[in-house]
Structure formats: C-alpha cells, structure tokens
C-alpha cells in the first residue's frame, strides 16, 4: 500500500451535482471513455434516492474516488433490503491508499443504520482489482450466477 490517505485531509461525503465532472474524469482515466450523459444521469438518480449511499472521497478539496450503491429490496426473489454496490472508482494516482476502503466503510455504516443486512454486487470474472477489493471488504462469492444474452 502507498502512503495511506487517511488522516491527510480525506473527507468522505454524499455526492453532489458539482462532482459530476470529477467523476467523469476518473472514469475517463480508468476506462478511457468520456461519458458525461451517463454520469449526469447516474448522479441525478442517486441524488433522487439516497445520497448517503452514493459517496465521494475528497482529498484536499479534489474528488479522487466514488462508490455508488443503492438500497433496494424485492429483487431476484430476495426479500430483504439489500445494498447493491453498483460502481466504484478511485483515481489511478490515488489508488492503494485506503480511499476505496474508507468509502466502503462509510457506506456500510450507513447501510447498517438503515437496517440493511446484506450487501451485494456483481464483478466481472476478469476484474481482479475489484474482486480483490470486494474480498478485502469481506464480500465473498455468493451462490448466484449472472445470466445474460444479447438482444
């Protein structure tokens, strides 16, 4: 791990509309795609639901990471409210400094306070970084298989 970012001026807080550009930029660095429309829609969506489950990490005033989750129930036959981690990203220059973990801890704290008992997510089988991250948070592969087809 590089020098931990905790204790340096790292703040984790709910996302706001002004963060959209920074999130787009992180996504662009991670995946090489500029997707303003996508992120506007996502940010507005989370703001209309539960902003405390859609978090950004700000290091010395700059947004350097985000983790968006959505608390839902009654899906896939699951009858308990579930926090679905939908997307996570930390700026490549700031990874391995504990930022992702801080984001996740705050999310889990919020979810517990809301009475949520399960956190779930889907990870591509080739995405070892995200898989390692999820495992480090205590999430284990679950006995579910994703099915899909192209239309």
């Amino acid at each position: 791990m590089d020098a931990p970012a905790t204790g340096t001026g790292l703040i984790v807080r709910p996302v706001c509309e002004m963060d959209t550009a920074a999130i787009e930029a992180i996504d662009e660095r991670l995946l090489g795609r500029y997707r303003p429309h996508h992120w506007e829609t996502r940010v507005r969506y989370y703001l209309s639901r539960d902003p405390e489950a859609a978090l950004v990490a700000e290091l010395d005033g700059e947004v350097v990471g985000f983790l968006f989750a959505d608390i839902r129930g009654w899906e896939f036959g699951l009858d308990e409210p579930t926090a679905w981690i939908e997307v996570v990203g930390v700026h490549p220059d700031q990874q391995h400094r504990g930022i992702g973990r801080r984001l996740a801890e705050q999310l889990l704290e919020h979810c517990r306070a809301q009475g949520v008992r399960y956190v779930r997510t889907m990870v591509h089988q080739d995405d070892h970084a995200i898989a390692g991250f999820m495992r480090s948070l205590g999430l284990e592969p679950a006995p579910w298989t994703a099915y899909a087809r192209e239309l």
Partner: peptide, 20 residues
C-alpha cells in the same frame, strides 16, 4: 439539504446537456 442537492442536479444536468 438532501432534497436541495437533487434540486441543484435538476438544474445543472439540463444546463450541461443544452450546452453540449
């Protein structure tokens, strides 16, 4: 305040789209 954050997005998102 939580609701207000949505109001700001309801303003800024269309503005960004109009501008593009």
């Amino acid at each position: 305040l939580q609701e207000e954050a949505f109001h700001l997005a309801a303003g800024v998102v269309p503005l960004r789209r109009w501008v593009r």
